[in-house]
Design a protein around this nucleic acid. Sequence first.
DNA 1: TGTACATCAGTGAACGCGCGTTCACTGATGTAC
DNA 2: TGTACATCAGTGAACGCGCGTTCACTGATGTAC
Lengths: 198, 198
Amino acid sequence: VGVSKEQAAQNRRDIIATANRLFRERGVTAVGLSELMQAAGFTQGGFYNHFESKDALVTEVVGAAMGEGKSEFVAAFSKATHDEPGGLARYNEHYLSKEHRDDIQGGCPVAGFAGIAPQLTECAQSNFVSGLDDLITLIAGLIVRDPAYDAGQCARSLRQQAIDHYCKLLGALMLSRATARSSPQLADEILESVELSL
Amino acid sequence: VGVSKEQAAQNRRDIIATANRLFRERGVTAVGLSELMQAAGFTQGGFYNHFESKDALVTEVVGAAMGEGKSEFVAAFSKATHDEPGGLARYNEHYLSKEHRDDIQGGCPVAGFAGIAPQLTECAQSNFVSGLDDLITLIAGLIVRDPAYDAGQCARSLRQQAIDHYCKLLGALMLSRATARSSPQLADEILESVELSL
DNA sequence: TGTACATCAGTGAACGCGCGTTCACTGATGTAC
DNA sequence: TGTACATCAGTGAACGCGCGTTCACTGATGTAC
């Protein structure tokens, strides 16, 4: 068939991007390689030109999703707000928005994979952990620049506060997603009941 | 083969209990009916004497798990502490303990199924939602009996506070479970970094 | 109380199907001369 | 710059396997008389 090296690399990225969407939406196990390749615009046989196995793909998908998530975070909340203080509030608002809740295919990759992370391969889970660690650090960066942050009250480290803060965001998002289809009312109520303080 | 009605009912309960464990640990899709029935001590053909389909089983499992979770909560934290105020603190401590984190097969059913709840059948998710709603109410009951609870500061309803509180517990538990295998250190750090205030 | 029979939980083989994976083949890309 | 050839991404058929589900059969339970 014949395809340039750049085109092949792009196709590889397309497969990963498609898998990222499908895996988050329906679960890794529920998505077959045949369906995946078809959704990405190829026939199923080509899969093994790019990946050694389905497990290897999953590992790459998690790694890529975490990397993209980090880049997007930096662009939207760290870089953009480097000289202005409202980054944390904007992140909170975005994270707990209905748009983010309804965008399971996209959005925060930690929230997208946390539910199945216990069942991931060691390698894939390791990519998850690296991305999570980066996110914690980035959130700590937002906290320290927040006007409400009081460096004096430091019984807890900045990192502890970042973890604490993120746990609540994650819990609310996952719970809202978990209930969205059966009870949209409860799903919305969850997002609205969470209070983010420093 | 012949089995009494009571025995048959018990066998049904055994299948549900086994499925509850296996589904939480490995995911619904990853557990086959053949494996499930064998784990419960039966041959696979018998499954359809008890359930109409795998989906029907999942619905029952979620419902049963939520019901048990509620009973256990009431026995351990509501009833036992009806006349003493430390129920909320004890619940927090239990929820964020390493034992609870490591017990994915058991423990809180909301945490056990929240990750896959978006992919559940409407019926199964509906059972999930009912159980979650009960849990929120029970936590609200603990909050109102907590010494630190100040009825005067009521900008937020008791229910809002319960949701807020539970989101953080859930987020921390799920994140700790998500990272436990690859980074036990981070998993422990998450549990220890969460601060529960009223 | 004792016998005859319907019920139905449990067995284990079988069904079609889609899974992850392999393979022989194609043909444009991209290098060697 | 032009020709010859190796590479390798993509194709599509095929592999064995385990999936969810069905079925004919067994035999103790539990009811009817």
